[in-house]
Design a binder for these strands. Sequence first.
RNA 1: CCAGGAAAGA
Length: 279
Amino acid sequence: LFVSNIVIEMYGRCGSMVDAQEVFDSMRQKNLFTWALLLSVYARNGHLQEAKSLFDKMPGRNLVACTGMLVAYTDRSHLEEAKTLFDWMPERDLVCWTAMLTAFAENGHLQIAEALFDEMPERDLISWSAMLSVYARHGKLDKAKSVFDEMEERNLVSWTAMLAAYAQNGQVEKAKQVFDKMPERNLVSWTAMLVALAQSGQASGAKRVFETMDEKNLLTCTAMLGLLTNSGKLQEAKLVFDQMPELDLVSWTAMLSAYAQSGRLEEAKHIFDGMEEKN
RNA sequence: CCAGGAAAGA
């Protein structure tokens, strides 16, 4: 049973919903983990309908299943349904409170998110970090900073959230200070720093950071790509683009619009035709 | 310990 559960999760991570469903169907015994896992597979891949019907069929709906469903709703911007589900839940814990908070914040309801944060019966490191990011996303840097200062413990994610807050709002110097003060850094923090430099036009600094990084992923490369296209360095951008380990909608679109905006329609068309997914 | 919430890219 445990092994099958792990296999379902594995397929889910690769986006192979059909395989995950197949394993699920072939299982003679299932536990709550099994159901919740398949639900999260559909939720993560944006298949709200499947998630919903699975949720309705579930033998027992616990907190985990409800929270998974709640997140599935918010990812597809069904805030009303998420809220209804939240209100209907017989029990709520930290995790679903935080999920609900994020849901409101992502749909532009800053005040409701704030109120939820105050109402929460308990808060942990994750809910504090969530609130920090909510303020950052709404451009409330001072509030984000005071949340950060009020936190009694911080980890890599909360430090990176603070760094990203400055990065997204064009405060390179502050971002640098945070970056230097952080006890540890990972790929995400490095990428956030890269974005801070790129956004303030410090191309050489950004390039240096990019070349220094020993680990890069799709997001890192897309950030670099954005810097190059924004400064009109199309050929360099194309080089990065061609060397990227994988491409997605965001990176394809970045390259496409770079060509489009500089009037290189044939190149743009070529990129467009090569896109594996379009929206 | 086999499941759910927070951080980076157009």
